[in-house]
Structure formats: structure tokens, C-alpha cells
Design a binder for these strands. Structure first.
Lengths: 214, 214
DNA sequence: TTCACTTTCACTGTTTACCGTGATAAAAAC
DNA sequence: GTTTTTATCACGGTAAACAGTGAAAGTGAA
């Protein structure tokens, strides 16, 4: 009995590479490949009963990113496993992966053997995270306790993002259909929470966190 | 007669992918693959007379990056062609590639067909740059003329730097031993000159220009 | 089902930023 | 040697940001 796999990656060449690696393995059947997560979500909607064992996916993709894809797929079919393959290895992303209950992670510079091992491990019901990733994760957990207890809520992120885009309080209120007073509250809280003094500080924070582009 | 190719990429999986794509093409012979540029440079030193037609390389790699590799290889043997394959597409990098006389560029999300076309074109003696890249390059050249004529004076830079550091007008005036009115003038001129709306815009500009650290 | 957090809103001040308009002396460019 | 740019300062008005305080409804987890 073959396992059914789906591969998602917006880098076509990489996709071709994965395909040719997996095609040499006789017990894997590639059901579908796509260049973004949206295709996969639609495919699942159309074929709800098709057995899918594993989705191999990149993280940064247009439309539906890897983590969102993982979430959507598992909501509808919790037996689907997901293996993330990416070249990024920043601690926050890894944190994010683990929080979202991804089944495994292999960096893009891994050997072919490691990829196959990861797939086998995950299909066997276990999780697979490459050694490097575990190290980064742990190191981060220890150093994070001190600095980064600051967590912004969704709304706060909405507001700080718009502030950093040079909108005034009134304009932000209009865009979010909220009272001007509400936005002023948020700005005030953000300034206190982030220990900054004014718009300049908020803007720098938004940039640092990647809420806006340079 | 086969063409001799070398492939360099620190992402092993991607390397495997390229290999499997090129192995189906009978007229290309993969002489060597490596995960960084250093290997290739050493190989050339040891085998100076081996005919190499094309080096396919990533840009960001450990030890010797793609652009440096291109330079070193062509110094010793100008007939070697180089094709860069990367997922980055920021204007500065493209500028860099063209200045360093790379023979072609294909993004990593390109189709297999485009890769093969690029290889054929380059081996035929021409250069190949993917359409997207040309667009980005041109757009950058045009937009730069307008933006980059903006030159801030020393004093203006002093002021915008302090603004981005979250100081108020009065504080900046004190630090620079100037009148509060003077600083207000500068802020006003900066906002007009840089076509921004407020402190947030000034802060982003200061960051972009490297006047302050993130 | 509490309890904490989030989201939303309101009022009242004070301070600062933003805008227009303009002036003067010195330095730099033409 | 005149013109342009730079650096400096001034005033008055409006709009916005900043600060303190408080409060109510909804979410969600312990």
C-alpha cells in the first residue's frame, strides 16, 4: 500500500527536485503538487474523501502560507501529517511551527537521506525535527524569558501597523470602524507596553517586527 | 559533444533537484556539484585544463558566494559562463549581478523550461535574464533618479537622526544648542522634502538610510 | 464559573507636532 | 559677483499626539 503525498512549494525548481527524489521511492505516490497553499485547500474541498497521508510544504508562499495551510488541512482531517521544508531558521518561526503542531521540519540544505528519514518518521506517527532546529529552539527558550514577554494582541498589531504607515488617529479609526478614542487608547497602551516615547518608537518597533516593509 | 556543467548550491535538496532535471538532458555532463564556492575554486586550481562550459550557482553560500565565485573563475578562464539561480530579487542584488558580468539569472521559482532555455541561451553565447528581473532592474533605475536626488544637509541629518531616536523638538534643540523654532523648521522641511506625513515617515527614512540602528 | 485579558469607548487636560509664511547672514555654487 | 543653498530664527494657528483615569462588554482559559 502506497502513501499519498502532496508537495507545495512556490519555487518550481525545488518542487521538481523533491519530486525526482520521491519518485525513486516506490512506496510514495505524489497525488498533487502546487505552488501555493490555496490550491491544496481547494483540492481538499473538492475531494474530501481522498486519503492524504502527508503534505510537504514550504512556509513562505503566496496566498496561503505553510502554517495556515497546516491549520486548515488538519481542521478538516486531523490524520493528515505535515512536514515543513524551509530555508529559514529563525527562532520565532520555529516557535510558530511548534505551536501550530506541525509534524516535522527539515531545512532545505538537508541531505536527501534526512528528508526520507523525516518522512518515514512522521508517517510512522512520530514527529521529526532536525537537530539544528531543536538547538535553535532550546537556545531561544532560555534567552527569551528575559526580553520578549511582550506580546501584542491582534488589534494592537493592526493599530501599530497603521501608525507606522503614517496614518493619523482619525484615519485609523475610520479604517477600522472604531472610535478615535479607541485608537488613542491603543496608541497609549502600545507606547507604555513597548517602553517607547512616541510615533518614532512605535514605527521602529513595527519595522523590527516586520509588520510593515521598509 | 557534451557541455560540461558545474552546479553549486548550499541547499542540498535544491541541488538534487537541479541534478535530476539536468540528467534527463543528454547533452549536459555534470562534472561536479558542491555546496559552496570554495570547492569549485580549488577544483579549478587542481584541474586547470579541464574544459568547463557553465557554472550554475546560488548567490548566498558559505565561504565563497556566487558573485565572488563568478569573478574568480572568469579571471582564470574567461570562457566559463555563469548562471545564477536564486530566490532573491532585490534591485541592489540584481545591480550587483549585472555589474559583475554574470551571464544569466533565473529565479528559483522559475519553470524547468525556463532553466533549460537559460542554459541554452548562455551556452549559445548570449546572456539570459528572466523577464521579472529585467523589470525590477529597469523600474529601479527609473525610480532612483527621482528619489535619490534628495540630498539632506548635515544639519538635516542631525535632526532627523535625533527625531528617529524619539527625542522631542525641545530636546533636540537643547542638544544641538539651537532654538526650538529652528528644529521645527527642519522637521517641516524634512517632511516636505521626503514626501512623508509625520514622525513615522521620518523614522522610516532614517532607518532606511542607516542613520540609526533598528 | 470565576478571573484575567481583550476590545471597545469616553472625558479632560497638556504638550507637541504640523502648517503657512517669512526673515537674515553666511557659505557655496555658478 | 551675483545667485542659490544652507543654517538659523520667529510667530500664530490648527490638528494631533500624549497623559491620566475610568469603565463596560466580550473572550477564553484555569
Amino acid at each position: 500500500m502506497k502513501y499519498n503525498l502532496i508537495i507545495v512549494d512556490d519555487h518550481k525548481m525545488f518542487l521538481d527536485g523533491l519530486l525526482s527524489i520521491l519518485n525513486t521511492e516506490s512506496n510514495y505516490h505524489i497525488v498533487l503538487t502546487a505552488k501555493d497553499g490555496e490550491h491544496i485547500v481547494k483540492y481538499q474541498e473538492i475531494n474530501p474523501n481522498e486519503k492524504i497521508d502527508l503534505v510537504i510544504t514550504d512556509i513562505s508562499m503566496p496566498k496561503v502560507d505553510g502554517i495556515t495551510l497546516n491549520k486548515i488541512l488538519k481542521e478538516k482531517n486531523p490524520s493528515i501529517k505535515t512536514l515543513v521544508v524551509s530555508m529559514h531558521n529563525d527562532p520565532q518561526m520555529i516557535d510558530n511551527l511548534i505551536e501550530h503542531d506541525v509534524d516535522g521540519y527539515v531545512p532545505k540544505n538537508a541531505e536527501k537521506q534526512e528528508l526520507l528519514l523525516a518522512i518515514e518518521t512522521i508517517l510512522g506517527g512520530k514527529k521529526y525535527f532536525s537537530r539544528d532546529i531543536k538547538d535553535i529552539y532550546l537556545e531561544n527558550k532560555f534567552s527569551k524569558k528575559k526580553e520578549n514577554t511582550i506580546k501584542l494582541t491582534k488589534r494592537e498589531i493592526d493599530v501599530i501597523t497603521l501608525i507606522a504607515q503614517e496614518f493619523t488617529t482619525q484615519e485609523i479609526a475610520d479604517q477600522l470602524f472604531l472610535s478615535k478614542h479607541t485608537i488613542e487608547s491603543y496608541r497609549k497602551n502600545l507606547i507604555a507596553k513597548l517602553s517607547v516615547r512616541n510615533l518614532a518608537g512605535l514605527t521602529k518597533y513595527a519595522l523590527k517586527m516586520g509588520y510593515i516593509d521598509a
